[in-house]
């Protein structure tokens, strides 16, 4: 289980969807590393990832780990060239590979102190419902 201290340490990064971009090869690096894992360059700049993207793969976990919802729905989404993992907290019934998703704030789990915490999470953007667009 994570803790308040650990979440606080990366709060700016998590909530701002921060990633790195390699100035040499142009690849987006997420999660952040101290060197570009693709070309080795250390010339990196911080970027904010877009809040919309598409689902690459997902899973519905019926046997979740302690502190997380049952089921825990997890997707990996392509957000501007980065693969980002997040819980799907809205529209999970319409989740398919390639589905369009939007980043929202979701209550995802409990810390070791017993506090509920929020993280960037995903909402599946339905084809059927009218598109509300970006809400931030």
């Amino acid at each position: 289980m994570t803790s308040v201290q650990r979440l606080w340490r990366r709060a700016r990064e998590y909530l701002g969807l921060k990633a790195l971009k390699c100035r040499r090869c142009g690849e987006v690096i997420y999660p952040p590393k101290r060197a570009c894992p693709y070309c080795g360059s250390r010339d990196l700049e911080e970027v904010a990832l877009p809040r919309r993207g598409k689902v690459i793969t997902y899973t519905v976990i019926n046997v979740p780990i302690e502190g997380f919802p049952k089921p825990t729905v997890i997707a990996v989404a392509d957000l501007g060239g980065a693969k980002v993992m997040a819980q799907v907290v809205e529209g999970a019934e319409e989740l398919v590979e390639g589905a369009e998703v939007e980043v929202v704030l979701g209550k995802v789990g409990r810390t070791v102190e017993g506090l509920e915490y929020y993280m960037p999470a995903l909402r599946v953007v339905s084809d059927k419902s009218p598109d509300e667009g970006d809400t931030d």
């Binding site: 999660p31 690459i56 899973t59 997890i74 789990g109």
Partner: peptide, 26 residues
């Protein structure tokens, strides 16, 4: 798994492998 960028979202170890399995099959 990666505590700060994966586990914090709640995947079990089976869940992480499931992400690969779905992608591979598809």
């Amino acid at each position: 798994s990666d505590a700060d960028y994966e586990l914090v979202h709640g995947p079990s170890f089976a869940g992480l492998n499931a992400l690969l399995m779905r992608h591979y099959m598809s």
